[in-house]
Amino acid sequence: MAQLKGWKEIPIAGIILEAGNAVEYRTGGWRAFRPVRGEAECIHCFQCWLFCPDSSILVDAENEKMIGFDLDHCKGCGICARVCPVNEKVIRNAGTKLARDDARLCIRIVEEGRVKE
């Protein structure tokens, strides 16, 4: 956090003039689990983008591609993996319950510290 400012240096009334400056606050450090891309190919349906509570799915909006995770802010809730329709298909095809970090998935949820990348 930046140097604390004196009362003459800040706007009155506790007003914040820098819209969306919360991006400067890294919530990624909260993570116990991390989303990583698995073997199954992404279909760029943007379901993960739609349901991420932390706006932490990185997309190339112009080319309509999901390109990764904003690990500075992702808190590792795992919702992206749960709403992923490719994951659903992989699980259905496997015919059995898969671990969250199964390599065959499209979005895997891996324990922080066990990530090999």
Binding site: L4, I10, A13, G14, I15, I16, L17, A19
Partner: peptide
């Protein structure tokens, strides 16, 4: 110029 008014203000400010 979007502003936020009424933020949570702790002991630091």
């Amino acid at each position: 110029h979007p502003k936020t008014l009424g933020a949570l203000d702790f002991y630091d400010y």
